[in-house]
Structure formats: structure tokens, C-alpha cells
Design a protein around this nucleic acid. Structure first.
Lengths: 260, 260
DNA sequence: CCTAAGACTTTGTTCAACAATCGACCGTAG
DNA sequence: CTACGGTCGATTGTTGAACAAAGTCTTAGG
């Protein structure tokens, strides 16, 4: 069973079990290379709204700001481009990606495929959903919502869906889906009030968890489908609104964005 | 009104319509950066079998061989790693990826999802398959097979499937699928005689095309499902065989491959 | 046989420089 | 006034050398 996990391998339950507890530690972020750290910072700045969609990111400026060399910045850019967070054009550099309505539609098409397939798998008994992990995530989201930490609510909600998809135990599905979840966060940025977006999804996730825990998987699947339709519609509407108001037709040359 | 718009209407038989033909030029292959060219060469060497799976690729050696700087080589490595053709481990560099049976199973799970969904889409009338493009690809494959150019047969066969998937008109599905097709070519490498693998798939693709052209999409879907099962089985078997024979347990440290 | 210290190799990162390309500015011609 | 064409400055693309950090191999010793 080749589980290509970069970090500790879970098969460490043999021999002198003294170190086993250490293996379960949160692994305090190795973040090995400078490029990864740089990418992390840029990513964070994007999701905090400091680097808004459309913002060009010059290599020299980032190099100075992050205190790393230009080569390292370029390396970080490449990572973020492959995550679809930046768009790249030769000799023109990178800019923070604009998520269009078309993009959202495309992302949700993939979400439906992967998430509904996961439920189908569970219905057919091919794999099992991790009910307790799912429940924990809902609880975490509820606590964050109660405390008003809406950004965290959004993040945890996405992990909730990742956990569902993980039931298929497909490394590639997990990877692609994770990237989709990162990308869709660009769509969250158009909401000035995150509560508006995430607020009522928390109780619905709780309901989903209840259905799954109760074994009512068919009902859960139906609910999930509705959930996805509505989420897509809500983000699409928000994007349409914001693109009308703030004239963002400044998309310059050509029509689309390159660099996928 | 001499606005030289790129896509003027076809009524170009008047005035100074002289430039309109230029708009239809094939746009002469950019291949802009040295890193992309380097990646292209390495990719080609992998699929030609000169860089076999498991081969480590030292930066310095490639830098000298390709006549580009080490930084550019690293850039190329990163591209190929994100295509899943190379595996990467910090401070240990990259090596050509081993495709395991588990990988093949995972890839084919995705293939089924995407390809069968494309047929379902066509069945529901949501999108249409490009029958002529599909037919052209089969013809090309037939000609290559007749001439014994089996590597080309494999490539064209993959493009045949890409064309089917393209019916869904989803940029992200296309991208992910294209990457899967690249990756599965690593599985082709275990066949010493490519004809053994690709040979009888060509007539089956012809049959598939016939069914699609005839509008018999349900039958096509069923055939495609069988096709995929058999292809998976054939590659899996070949990998099991080759990993038994040539002791490839030289997978050194740890059990898996990192870097996905 | 196994272990450990040191030598060697390869990767990670930086820096400075130059070439290639892009975008804007600015005259000139119609 | 607008359209065209060239110049210039800024940014990206790429190089080569250099050094630090981590891994691998060799060798000496228990």
C-alpha cells in the first residue's frame, strides 16, 4: 500500500512503541524550503484580501518584501500558478487570479462529480465515510461560527467536504479536489461579509452529518446535491454583482486568463 | 471604419480585406521559455525509454547535457513533477517515476469517471461529441499501426480518449485528464513490444467511433466501460510481471514515492 | 559485523549581470 | 485629431558562480 505521504508514515506501530505518540503530533509545519514558505505567505495574503484578484505581483517587489531571492520568488510563483491562484503570462509576470462565473461553474461541476461519487461509493458499500472525523469538523465549524471567526468557518467547511471525498481513498481525487477547494476560496473573497456566505451552511453540514451517521446515505446524497447547487448559485450571483459594480473590465489584452 | 479586428466577418470580398487571411495562421508554436524546452526534451527521453523509471536525474548532469543553467533545469523539473512524471524528495533530487499497480488503479478510476461522464453527457444531450475529430484520430491511429509506428499509435489513442472527454467542455476536466494521459504513458513503458498493448485497441476505437457516429451512445458507453476494464487489467498485469522479474525492489528508503 | 567520524557529492539558495520582451510615451504624417 | 512607428524604461528570462545545508559514501575502529 504505497501511500505517498510526504510526512510520517502511519505504519510506525511496531517495535519499541515508545515513539508512537510522537508520530501523532501535528508535525509543527516543516515547511522545508524557502520557496514553500514564500508561497505560503503569498497564499495567506491572497486569502486575507491584501492581494486582491487582478493585482500584479512583480518579482522584484516580492523578493524585497519576503527577503528571499528573485529565483525563490519565481519558484513560489510556479507553485501558486499550479494551484490556480495566480495566472501567468510570458514576459508579463503573474497576477492574482480573477475567478469568473464560468470558473465557478466549472469548479462546481467537478465538485459534484467527486462529492456525489463519494456518497455513491458509500451507498454501494465500497468504502465507508469517516463519520467521526466529519462530525468533528462540523463541531469545529460551529464553534468558529459562534465566535465569529468566519474565515475559519469557511476553511473548516471546505475540509468537511474534503473529508467526504476522501472516502474514495483515491490519492489523485484527493489532490485534485484539494486544489479545487483552494481555488474556490478565491470566490469567497467577493463577499464583504463572510457570514453571509458561510453562515447557514454550518447547520446544513450538521444535518448532513446527522444523515450520514444515521446511515441515511441516499437522503444525504440528495441534500448534498441541493447544497452544491445553492452554494454555486450564491457565489455566482455575488461575482456577477461585484463585477457589475466595480468595473473590472480592466482585463486588458485578449479575453481570458492564460496560465492554467 | 478600417478597424483591423482579428475576427472580421467573412464578407471580406470587399475593400482592403487583405489582412484577413493572416488571422487564420496556425500561430507557429510558441515554446517560449528555455525551461519548457528542457522539460520537453526530458519528457521525450522518458517516453522513449532512455530515462527509465527509477533513474535519478542529477541537476548538474542535465544542466550540462541540455546546455542550460541549473536554475532552468530545476524549473523544468518542477513542471515535470507537477505532471507526475518525476518524483521529488528534498535534498535528494528527482527521479523518473515508478508507476505502481496502485497508481494504475487510481488512474483508471479517474478515467472511468471522466470518460463515462462524457458519454452520459452526450446521452442526455447536454453536449455533443465531435464525431469527425474522433474519426480522424482513429484513422490516424490505423495508419500509424499499419506502418508499425506503435509509439505514435499509443499517443493517438490517448488523444482519442481526450477528445471524448472534451465533450464536457470543462477546462479543468480537460487539464486533469490530459495529465492522467501523460501519466499513464509511464505504464506503457513496461511493455517491451508496444504492439502487444496497443494493437487490438485500434479496431475497438474504430468500433466505438462507429457506435458514436451511429448515435448508439448507450452501446458506446457500455463498450467503453469494458475497454477501460481491459486496458487497466492489461497494464496492471504487465507491471506485476515486470516488477517480479527485474527486481525493482531497489526503491530504497521508505516505502513510497513522495512529491505528488 | 556494526558503528561512527570524516570526505565527498548533490541539492537549496543567493547574488549580480545581461538579454529579451513588453508597455507606454512621443513625435510625425495623413 | 487620429493612426502609425520608433524609442525608452521597466520587468521578466536566463545565466554562472558561489556558498550553506543535507545526504551519501568511505574508512577506521570497536
Amino acid at each position: 500500500m504505497v501511500k505517498p505521504s510526504r510526512h510520517s508514515d502511519p505504519s510506525a506501530s511496531e517495535g519499541s512503541g515508545r515513539l508512537d505518540d510522537l508520530a501523532d503530533l501535528p508535525a509543527l509545519r516543516p515547511l522545508p524550503t524557502a520557496a514553500e514558505r514564500a508561497a505560503e505567505v503569498i497564499r495567506e495574503n491572497i486569502f486575507e484580501g491584501r492581494f486582491a484578484p487582478g493585482t500584479p505581483l512583480p518579482e522584484a517587489a516580492l523578493s524585497k518584501a519576503l527577503q528571499v531571492s528573485r529565483n525563490t520568488v519565481r519558484e513560489a510563483f510556479r507553485m501558486l500558478t499550479s494551484e490556480h491562484l495566480l495566472t501567468y503570462e510570458a514576459h508579463r509576470g503573474v497576477m492574482v487570479r480573477w475567478l469568473s462565473e464560468v470558473d465557478v461553474g466549472d469548479i462546481y461541476r467537478l465538485r459534484r462529480m467527486f462529492e456525489l461519487a463519494a456518497l455513491d461509493h458509500a451507498i454501494d458499500g465500497r468504502h465507508e465515510l469517516d463519520v467521526s472525523a466529519i462530525g468533528d469538523l462540523v463541531t469545529t465549524a460551529e464553534r468558529a461560527a459562534a465566535a465569529g471567526r468566519w474565515k475559519e468557518v469557511g476553511t473548516v467547511n471546505l475540509r468537511f467536504h474534503e473529508q467526504i471525498v476522501a472516502a474514495q481513498q483515491s490519492p489523485r481525487i484527493n489532490e485534485v479536489f484539494r486544489r479545487l477547494m483552494t481555488e474556490i476560496r478565491l470566490g469567497f473573497l467577493v463577499f464583504t461579509d463572510p457570514a453571509e456566505l458561510h453562515g447557514d451552511f454550518v447547520p446544513r453540514n450538521r444535518e448532513l452529518h446527522g444523515l450520514i451517521a444515521g446511515g441515511d446515505l441516499r437522503q444525504a446524497r440528495a441534500e448534498l446535491a441541493i447544497y452544491l447547487d445553492e452554494a454555486e448559485h450564491r457565489i455566482t450571483t455575488a461575482i456577477r454583482g461585484s463585477s457589475d459594480r466595480s468595473g473590472r473590465s480592466g482585463r486588458s489584452r485578449k479575453e481570458g486568463q492564460a496560465g492554467v
